[in-house]
Design a protein around this nucleic acid. Structure first.
Lengths: 150, 150
DNA sequence: CTGGTTGCAAAGGATTTGCAAGTTC
DNA sequence: GAACTTGCAAATCCTTTGCAACCAG
Protein backbone atom coordinates (compact mmCIF):
# COMPACT_ATOMS: atom_id res chain seq x y z
CA UNK A 1 0.00 0.00 0.00
CA UNK A 2 1.21 3.44 -0.96
CA UNK A 3 2.25 5.57 1.94
CA UNK A 4 3.23 9.15 2.48
CA UNK A 5 6.93 8.43 2.61
CA UNK A 6 6.99 6.79 -0.82
CA UNK A 7 4.89 9.56 -2.29
CA UNK A 8 7.17 12.20 -0.90
CA UNK A 9 10.28 10.35 -2.06
CA UNK A 10 8.87 10.03 -5.56
CA UNK A 11 7.89 13.66 -5.61
CA UNK A 12 11.37 14.73 -4.59
CA UNK A 13 12.93 12.46 -7.15
CA UNK A 14 10.75 13.85 -9.93
CA UNK A 15 11.74 17.36 -9.00
CA UNK A 16 15.41 16.36 -8.81
CA UNK A 17 15.41 17.13 -5.12
CA UNK A 18 16.86 14.99 -2.38
CA UNK A 19 15.61 12.63 0.25
CA UNK A 20 17.37 13.65 3.43
CA UNK A 21 17.19 12.48 7.02
CA UNK A 22 15.75 15.85 8.03
CA UNK A 23 12.92 15.58 5.52
CA UNK A 24 12.15 12.03 6.59
CA UNK A 25 12.06 13.01 10.23
CA UNK A 26 9.85 16.03 9.68
CA UNK A 27 7.31 13.99 7.74
CA UNK A 28 7.46 11.28 10.35
CA UNK A 29 6.74 13.62 13.21
CA UNK A 30 4.14 15.53 11.24
CA UNK A 31 2.21 12.30 10.70
CA UNK A 32 2.27 11.56 14.40
CA UNK A 33 -0.11 14.48 14.91
CA UNK A 34 -3.84 14.46 14.28
CA UNK A 35 -5.81 17.25 12.70
CA UNK A 36 -4.36 20.71 12.39
CA UNK A 37 -0.77 21.09 13.44
CA UNK A 38 0.96 24.33 14.30
CA UNK A 39 4.54 24.95 13.32
CA UNK A 40 5.34 25.59 16.93
CA UNK A 41 4.19 22.19 18.24
CA UNK A 42 5.84 20.49 15.33
CA UNK A 43 9.13 22.27 15.92
CA UNK A 44 9.13 21.47 19.62
CA UNK A 45 8.59 17.79 19.03
CA UNK A 46 11.21 17.72 16.30
CA UNK A 47 13.84 19.35 18.47
CA UNK A 48 13.38 16.63 21.06
CA UNK A 49 14.61 14.13 18.52
CA UNK A 50 17.23 16.39 16.97
CA UNK A 51 17.93 19.71 18.65
CA UNK A 52 20.21 20.81 15.85
CA UNK A 53 17.44 21.12 13.27
CA UNK A 54 16.70 24.67 12.12
CA UNK A 55 13.30 26.26 11.85
CA UNK A 56 14.08 27.20 8.26
CA UNK A 57 14.36 23.54 7.34
CA UNK A 58 10.98 22.91 8.88
CA UNK A 59 9.36 25.68 6.88
CA UNK A 60 11.11 24.57 3.70
CA UNK A 61 10.03 20.96 4.15
CA UNK A 62 6.46 21.89 4.94
CA UNK A 63 6.34 23.90 1.76
CA UNK A 64 7.48 20.86 -0.19
CA UNK A 65 4.83 18.72 1.48
CA UNK A 66 2.22 21.25 0.49
CA UNK A 67 3.54 21.29 -3.08
CA UNK A 68 3.17 17.55 -3.38
CA UNK A 69 -0.31 17.74 -1.89
CA UNK A 70 0.35 15.58 1.10
CA UNK A 71 -0.33 18.51 3.35
CA UNK A 72 -2.59 21.52 3.27
CA UNK A 73 -1.85 24.87 4.83
CA UNK A 74 -4.48 27.02 6.50
CA UNK A 75 -4.25 30.49 7.94
CA UNK A 76 -5.88 31.86 11.00
CA UNK A 77 -6.68 35.20 12.51
CA UNK A 78 -3.62 35.31 14.66
CA UNK A 79 -1.51 35.20 11.54
CA UNK A 80 -0.24 31.72 12.24
CA UNK A 81 -0.40 28.89 9.81
CA UNK A 82 -1.68 25.45 10.50
CA UNK A 83 -0.87 22.33 8.52
CA UNK A 84 -3.24 19.50 7.87
CA UNK A 85 -2.61 15.99 6.63
CA UNK A 86 -4.33 15.43 3.31
CA UNK A 87 -3.67 11.82 2.50
CA UNK A 88 -5.44 8.74 3.77
CA UNK A 89 -7.99 10.82 5.59
CA UNK A 90 -11.63 10.86 4.73
CA UNK A 91 -13.38 14.14 4.24
CA UNK A 92 -16.52 15.05 6.12
CA UNK A 93 -18.57 18.06 7.10
CA UNK A 94 -19.85 19.17 10.47
CA UNK A 95 -23.14 19.85 12.12
CA UNK A 96 -22.45 21.80 15.29
CA UNK A 97 -24.73 22.66 18.18
CA UNK A 98 -23.91 26.22 19.19
CA UNK A 99 -25.37 25.65 22.61
CA UNK A 100 -23.66 22.48 23.86
CA UNK A 101 -20.94 22.09 21.24
CA UNK A 102 -22.07 18.65 20.19
CA UNK A 103 -20.71 17.87 16.74
CA UNK A 104 -22.03 15.45 14.16
CA UNK A 105 -20.07 14.52 11.06
CA UNK A 106 -21.92 13.99 7.84
CA UNK A 107 -21.53 14.02 4.10
CA UNK A 108 -23.98 14.70 1.35
CA UNK A 109 -23.11 13.59 -2.17
CA UNK A 110 -25.39 16.08 -3.90
CA UNK A 111 -23.95 19.01 -2.05
CA UNK A 112 -20.53 17.86 -3.10
CA UNK A 113 -21.70 17.63 -6.68
CA UNK A 114 -23.01 21.21 -6.67
CA UNK A 115 -19.78 22.40 -5.15
CA UNK A 116 -17.88 21.03 -8.10
CA UNK A 117 -20.29 22.71 -10.50
CA UNK A 118 -19.88 26.05 -8.79
CA UNK A 119 -16.11 25.81 -8.97
CA UNK A 120 -16.15 24.93 -12.62
CA UNK A 121 -18.40 27.88 -13.31
CA UNK A 122 -15.81 30.22 -11.81
CA UNK A 123 -12.76 28.49 -13.29
CA UNK A 124 -11.55 27.16 -9.97
CA UNK A 125 -9.95 23.80 -9.36
CA UNK A 126 -11.57 22.56 -6.19
CA UNK A 127 -9.11 21.21 -3.66
CA UNK A 128 -11.20 20.88 -0.56
CA UNK A 129 -14.06 22.45 1.26
CA UNK A 130 -15.29 23.18 4.66
CA UNK A 131 -18.94 23.28 5.59
CA UNK A 132 -20.27 23.88 9.04
CA UNK A 133 -23.95 23.95 9.85
CA UNK A 134 -24.54 25.78 13.09
CA UNK A 135 -27.72 25.16 15.00
CA UNK A 136 -29.36 23.95 18.16
CA UNK A 137 -29.63 20.23 18.82
CA UNK A 138 -32.81 18.53 19.99
CA UNK A 139 -31.54 18.14 23.50
CA UNK A 140 -30.71 21.77 23.98
CA UNK A 141 -33.94 22.89 22.40
CA UNK A 142 -35.92 20.79 24.88
CA UNK A 143 -33.88 22.00 27.79
CA UNK A 144 -34.49 25.62 26.91
CA UNK A 145 -38.14 24.99 26.26
CA UNK A 146 -37.97 26.36 22.76
CA UNK A 147 -40.49 25.31 20.17
CA UNK A 148 -39.04 23.07 17.48
CA UNK A 149 -37.74 24.72 14.31
CA UNK A 150 -37.92 28.16 15.71
CA UNK B 1 -33.48 52.32 9.97
CA UNK B 2 -30.49 51.22 11.95
CA UNK B 3 -27.23 51.73 10.20
CA UNK B 4 -23.61 50.85 10.75
CA UNK B 5 -22.68 54.30 11.98
CA UNK B 6 -25.22 54.28 14.76
CA UNK B 7 -24.29 50.76 15.78
CA UNK B 8 -20.62 51.64 15.89
CA UNK B 9 -21.31 54.82 17.85
CA UNK B 10 -23.40 52.90 20.37
CA UNK B 11 -20.77 50.25 20.69
CA UNK B 12 -18.07 52.82 21.35
CA UNK B 13 -20.25 54.58 23.86
CA UNK B 14 -20.95 51.36 25.76
CA UNK B 15 -17.25 50.64 25.93
CA UNK B 16 -16.52 54.19 27.00
CA UNK B 17 -14.58 54.79 23.85
CA UNK B 18 -14.83 57.78 21.57
CA UNK B 19 -16.40 58.62 18.29
CA UNK B 20 -13.70 60.38 16.31
CA UNK B 21 -13.52 61.75 12.80
CA UNK B 22 -10.91 59.13 11.92
CA UNK B 23 -13.17 56.30 13.00
CA UNK B 24 -16.07 57.75 11.08
CA UNK B 25 -14.00 58.14 7.98
CA UNK B 26 -12.57 54.65 8.13
CA UNK B 27 -16.01 53.11 8.51
CA UNK B 28 -17.30 55.30 5.73
CA UNK B 29 -14.62 54.27 3.28
CA UNK B 30 -14.77 50.66 4.37
CA UNK B 31 -18.46 50.56 3.50
CA UNK B 32 -17.74 51.98 0.06
CA UNK B 33 -16.07 48.69 -0.83
CA UNK B 34 -17.84 45.50 -1.77
CA UNK B 35 -16.91 42.05 -0.57
CA UNK B 36 -13.51 41.39 0.90
CA UNK B 37 -11.30 44.39 1.46
CA UNK B 38 -7.56 44.35 1.94
CA UNK B 39 -5.93 46.74 4.36
CA UNK B 40 -3.79 48.00 1.55
CA UNK B 41 -6.66 49.10 -0.70
CA UNK B 42 -8.44 50.58 2.25
CA UNK B 43 -5.39 52.54 3.34
CA UNK B 44 -4.76 53.90 -0.13
CA UNK B 45 -8.31 55.17 -0.46
CA UNK B 46 -8.24 56.65 3.02
CA UNK B 47 -5.03 58.54 2.39
CA UNK B 48 -6.61 60.21 -0.61
CA UNK B 49 -9.10 61.85 1.71
CA UNK B 50 -6.69 62.42 4.55
CA UNK B 51 -3.01 61.77 3.93
CA UNK B 52 -2.14 62.34 7.56
CA UNK B 53 -3.92 59.25 8.82
CA UNK B 54 -1.64 56.55 10.21
CA UNK B 55 -1.79 52.87 9.40
CA UNK B 56 -1.94 52.10 13.09
CA UNK B 57 -5.23 53.94 13.37
CA UNK B 58 -6.60 51.90 10.53
CA UNK B 59 -5.62 48.63 12.20
CA UNK B 60 -6.96 49.80 15.53
CA UNK B 61 -10.29 50.85 14.07
CA UNK B 62 -10.69 47.67 12.10
CA UNK B 63 -10.16 45.70 15.28
CA UNK B 64 -12.94 47.66 16.94
CA UNK B 65 -15.25 47.02 14.01
CA UNK B 66 -14.54 43.33 14.31
CA UNK B 67 -15.21 43.45 18.05
CA UNK B 68 -18.61 44.97 17.51
CA UNK B 69 -19.37 42.39 14.81
CA UNK B 70 -19.87 44.85 12.02
CA UNK B 71 -16.87 43.35 10.25
CA UNK B 72 -15.33 39.93 9.98
CA UNK B 73 -11.63 39.26 9.47
CA UNK B 74 -10.25 36.45 7.34
CA UNK B 75 -6.68 35.26 6.90
CA UNK B 76 -4.93 33.93 3.87
CA UNK B 77 -1.84 31.99 2.93
CA UNK B 78 0.12 35.04 2.01
CA UNK B 79 -0.23 36.20 5.57
CA UNK B 80 -2.54 39.05 4.70
CA UNK B 81 -5.87 39.68 6.27
CA UNK B 82 -9.06 40.59 4.54
CA UNK B 83 -12.05 42.35 6.07
CA UNK B 84 -15.66 41.70 5.22
CA UNK B 85 -18.79 43.67 5.97
CA UNK B 86 -21.17 41.72 8.17
CA UNK B 87 -24.21 43.91 8.48
CA UNK B 88 -26.99 44.52 6.01
CA UNK B 89 -25.56 41.98 3.65
CA UNK B 90 -27.24 38.90 2.44
CA UNK B 91 -25.68 35.65 3.48
CA UNK B 92 -23.39 34.02 0.97
CA UNK B 93 -20.73 31.39 0.80
CA UNK B 94 -17.16 31.65 -0.35
CA UNK B 95 -14.99 30.28 -3.06
CA UNK B 96 -11.41 30.94 -2.04
CA UNK B 97 -8.18 30.61 -3.95
CA UNK B 98 -5.73 29.10 -1.51
CA UNK B 99 -2.85 30.46 -3.51
CA UNK B 100 -3.63 34.16 -3.95
CA UNK B 101 -6.53 34.59 -1.56
CA UNK B 102 -8.92 35.77 -4.25
CA UNK B 103 -12.44 35.30 -2.98
CA UNK B 104 -15.67 34.88 -4.86
CA UNK B 105 -19.01 35.03 -3.14
CA UNK B 106 -21.83 32.81 -4.24
CA UNK B 107 -25.03 31.22 -3.12
CA UNK B 108 -26.71 28.07 -4.24
CA UNK B 109 -30.35 27.54 -3.32
CA UNK B 110 -30.23 23.77 -3.65
CA UNK B 111 -27.29 23.45 -1.34
CA UNK B 112 -29.18 25.52 1.19
CA UNK B 113 -32.17 23.26 0.80
CA UNK B 114 -30.12 20.13 1.48
CA UNK B 115 -28.59 21.75 4.50
CA UNK B 116 -32.03 22.17 5.98
CA UNK B 117 -32.85 18.54 5.22
CA UNK B 118 -29.69 17.32 6.89
CA UNK B 119 -30.45 19.33 9.99
CA UNK B 120 -33.97 18.03 10.18
CA UNK B 121 -32.69 14.48 9.87
CA UNK B 122 -30.51 14.98 12.92
CA UNK B 123 -33.05 16.97 14.90
CA UNK B 124 -31.14 20.24 14.67
CA UNK B 125 -32.61 23.69 14.27
CA UNK B 126 -30.38 25.38 11.73
CA UNK B 127 -29.28 28.87 12.72
CA UNK B 128 -26.58 29.62 10.20
CA UNK B 129 -23.90 28.00 8.18
CA UNK B 130 -20.51 28.57 6.75
CA UNK B 131 -19.26 26.98 3.58
CA UNK B 132 -15.90 27.58 2.03
CA UNK B 133 -14.75 25.96 -1.15
CA UNK B 134 -10.97 26.01 -1.29
CA UNK B 135 -9.25 25.72 -4.61
CA UNK B 136 -6.92 27.26 -7.13
CA UNK B 137 -8.18 30.01 -9.38
CA UNK B 138 -7.58 30.11 -13.11
CA UNK B 139 -4.92 32.76 -12.80
CA UNK B 140 -2.82 30.93 -10.27
CA UNK B 141 -3.16 27.69 -12.13
CA UNK B 142 -1.79 29.33 -15.29
CA UNK B 143 1.00 30.99 -13.38
CA UNK B 144 2.15 27.69 -11.95
CA UNK B 145 1.78 25.98 -15.28
CA UNK B 146 -0.55 23.37 -13.98
CA UNK B 147 -2.97 21.59 -16.28
CA UNK B 148 -6.61 22.49 -15.74
CA UNK B 149 -8.58 20.37 -13.32
CA UNK B 150 -5.58 18.45 -12.23
C1' DC C 1 32.27 15.58 -7.74
C1' DT C 2 28.05 18.40 -8.59
C1' DG C 3 24.31 20.54 -7.20
C1' DG C 4 20.86 20.32 -3.78
C1' DT C 5 20.51 21.03 1.49
C1' DT C 6 21.38 22.57 5.97
C1' DG C 7 21.68 25.78 10.10
C1' DC C 8 22.50 30.16 11.17
C1' DA C 9 21.64 34.81 11.34
C1' DA C 10 19.92 38.51 9.09
C1' DA C 11 16.14 40.25 6.27
C1' DG C 12 11.30 40.83 5.20
C1' DG C 13 6.52 41.96 5.52
C1' DA C 14 2.38 42.54 8.14
C1' DT C 15 0.66 44.02 12.38
C1' DT C 16 1.18 45.94 17.04
C1' DT C 17 2.85 48.95 20.60
C1' DG C 18 4.96 52.96 23.39
C1' DC C 19 4.82 57.57 23.67
C1' DA C 20 4.13 62.58 23.51
C1' DA C 21 0.96 65.65 21.62
C1' DG C 22 -3.74 66.34 20.46
C1' DT C 23 -9.01 65.49 21.06
C1' DT C 24 -13.37 64.23 22.90
C1' DC C 25 -16.77 64.40 26.32
C1' DG D 1 -9.43 68.57 32.70
C1' DA D 2 -9.31 63.48 32.61
C1' DA D 3 -9.12 59.86 29.74
C1' DC D 4 -9.07 58.28 25.31
C1' DT D 5 -6.82 58.80 20.44
C1' DT D 6 -3.71 59.90 17.21
C1' DG D 7 0.59 59.58 14.18
C1' DC D 8 4.99 58.29 14.33
C1' DA D 9 8.66 55.21 14.70
C1' DA D 10 10.31 51.40 16.79
C1' DA D 11 9.24 46.82 18.09
C1' DT D 12 7.30 42.32 17.40
C1' DC D 13 5.76 38.35 15.25
C1' DC D 14 6.00 34.77 11.87
C1' DT D 15 8.19 33.44 7.75
C1' DT D 16 11.70 33.71 4.16
C1' DT D 17 16.32 34.31 2.32
C1' DG D 18 21.56 34.55 1.67
C1' DC D 19 25.41 32.16 2.54
C1' DA D 20 29.24 29.01 3.63
C1' DA D 21 29.77 24.47 5.07
C1' DC D 22 27.85 20.05 4.32
C1' DC D 23 25.84 15.89 2.14
C1' DA D 24 23.15 12.81 -1.37
C1' DG D 25 23.34 10.66 -5.57
Amino acid sequence: MINEFDLFKDFLHQQKLRWTPQRKMILDIFLSFDGHVQIESLYEKIRVQDPSIGIATLYRTLKLLVDCELVEAHSFQNGKKTYERMFHVRHHDHLICTSCGKTIEFEHPLIEKYQVEICEAYGFTLKSHKMELLGICNNCRMKNNNPPFL
